[in-house]
Design a protein around this nucleic acid. Structure first.
Lengths: 200, 200
DNA sequence: TTATGCAGATGACAATTGTCATGAATATCC
DNA sequence: GGATATTCATGACAATTGTCATCTGCATAA
């Protein structure tokens, strides 16, 4: 019997997936979490064979959870299950060395099969991701990311400089450099591009 | 037998919901659509009793579909099923006079029951929406919305003026007025607020 | 030790943005 | 007709943004 934990904040989807997987003879859903923090503690206490992690969850993202699990040396196998084929997300997942990265756009029927294959030691990646997406690396460094994120929240260069204890001019230099790397002609376009790729 | 059509672009959720509803004795999923356009044509040909519409779908949103169905005098009852409790979305749905507005955050078990209640002539609204959200009306007029949307795509005032055949100054006036109404101190904050409320 | 690179700062400039007061043209209602 | 609202336009001003060339420490590797 394969013991599964599902971490997904959307209750309707979580419930439906649990039901669907429980219909399989060899799979048992042993726990459900609605945020990353809860997922971590449930995995620690339940020690499931596989966990299904959504990425965009409250408190901690699925990628945060995955990275921490690996760091803790957890034996629970990890499958990321997300809406987003964002290169930045995928890159982080690959670096964290997860066993699976599936898109919610994929077919329902394949989910149980992917879980079984992961249990056998395979890696499961949504076919959409295998080509293309992979190579797009995040061109922004930590500072640029930090500053562009604040800008994305509507902060002005002046506010950002105060928050980060940097000079006004330095902040603008970083933004300018980020826009250059993103090939965007202004903050708004830059933010769109970066968010879209999962680089923020 | 209640005949249902599901319009939802996320295949995993669509599949899981279809399976879940098909398990009910008195419900039959007769069709599935992955975008608004497909939903419209399937509803026309299949004439289901109820349709479940996601809002954010390709080609046509669920709200577009709902408005067109009502305009066409379709007898199919409409339930909006969405992630977003955005006032602007809810306002549009109420104005279109849909039979239900449920959140994907709601419990799976209640979905079938809501469908039955809608069939009996009731209206089904997620409890989260009944208080609060309702009263927040979209403060932006059509022009302000249009211009802020373009701005949200990264267009400069100059580009927008060319696209809409308005003067440069007029565009900036509209943006300024929109920011004032949204109580935002710059474009980026304004866009955030408006998108968050579903006003764009 | 030099040099190479990185994080940050400065100053200068142009372009864009945000704000406001004012005004023309048109339509709508009484 | 006169009062009113709507839509768009202008001009002027300050603040913010985007771009560049240049400069200072500071660390680190050859």
């Amino acid at each position: 019997m394969i013991r599964i934990l599902i971490a997904e904040d959307q209750r309707m989807l979580r419930g439906a997936l649990a039901l669907l997987l429980d219909l399989e003879d060899d799979i048992e859903v042993v726990g459900q979490a609605c945020d990353g923090q809860e997922a971590l503690s449930l995995i620690a206490s339940l020690q499931p064979d596989v966990c299904l992690l959504d990425i965009e969850m409250p408190v901690k993202t699925g990628l945060d959870v995955a990275e921490q699990l690996i760091e803790l040396g957890s034996i629970t196998r990890i499958i990321i299950l997300t809406t987003f084929a964002r290169p930045g997300y995928f890159e982080r997942a690959v670096k964290a060395n997860v066993q699976g990265y599936l898109l919610k756009d994929g077919p329902t029927e394949q989910l149980a099969e992917s879980i079984r294959r992961v249990m056998k030691g395979h890696r499961e990646i949504s076919p959409e991701l295998i080509f293309g997406t992979l190579k797009e690396e995040n061109p922004l460094n930590a500072r640029e990311r930090e500053i562009l994120s604040l800008s994305a929240q509507g902060k002005s260069a002046n506010e950002i400089s105060a928050m980060l204890h940097l000079s006004y001019g330095t902040v603008r230099n970083y933004i300018s450099e980020a826009l250059n790397k993103l090939d965007a002609k202004n903050r708004i376009e830059g933010i769109r591009v970066a968010e879209d790729k999962g680089w923020l």
